[in-house]
């Protein structure tokens, strides 16, 4: 059997949130590096002006990780949270459909779209959304990558009823070229 990271590594998911400023990632990862930690997959984004990060860390336990990073996050005014997780690396699932949604911002867009997709058995692998426009006329944009048996046709059928609700939905086949 192929050896996976889960066989011998205890992964932690580190979540850090707070006001954004230059140098946060450098300070955190330097502390982790000096403590002998390894990093796995990570997602970092600026959301509404906030620094947000979810980072897989291994090589220490959760109490030690908190002790290590607390001085840094306190100094930077950030909030810190650690979860023990099962870390599965080297088994990415490849999406076959991308769904792009945009429309005038109003409550319920995400719930309606993801609800319809879930009913069709669509597994969301990545979702990013943003609010654009102005305070007076905000609009909402969401891009979802995922996998569903039957591909774009199934996603299209699931989302067809939503187009009449003032939401523009575009469905694209993701056909990853393997060369």
């Amino acid at each position: 059997m192929e050896k996976t990271e889960t066989d011998d590594a205890q992964w932690l998911m580190l979540t850090v949130v707070g006001s954004d400023r230059p140098g946060i990632v450098a300070r955190l990862t330097e502390a982790l590096f000096h403590a002998g930690c390894n990093l796995g997959e990570a997602s970092m984004a600026r959301l509404g002006g906030n620094f947000t990060m979810m980072l897989m860390v291994e090589g220490t336990d959760s109490a030690a990780l908190e002790r290590l990073l607390r001085p840094v996050t306190d100094d930077l005014g950030l909030r810190l949270h650690v979860d023990v997780i099962q870390g599965i690396l080297h088994h990415h699932e490849e999406p076959n459909v991308q769904v792009t949604v945009h429309g005038a911002d109003r409550p319920g867009i995400v719930a309606q779209v993801t609800g319809a997709l879930a009913k069709a058995g669509f597994n969301i692998l990545d979702l990013n959304s943003d609010v654009g426009g102005t305070r007076e006329r905000p609009f909402y944009v969401m891009i979802i990558d995922g996998f569903v048996d039957g591909g774009a046709a199934v996603a299209e059928q699931a989302l067809a009823p939503l187009s009449t609700n003032g939401i523009e939905v575009r469905i694209t086949t993701l056909d990853t070229l393997i060369g």
């Binding site: 080297h90 088994h91 990415h92 490849e94 993701l174 056909d175 990853t176 070229l177 393997i178 060369g179």
Partner: peptide, 13 residues
């Protein structure tokens, strides 16, 4: 723009 992977670069696209 299009999505690519490679037999020489497993598990990444």
């Amino acid at each position: 723009k299009g999505r690519e992977g490679c037999m020489s670069v497993p598990d990444f696209t």
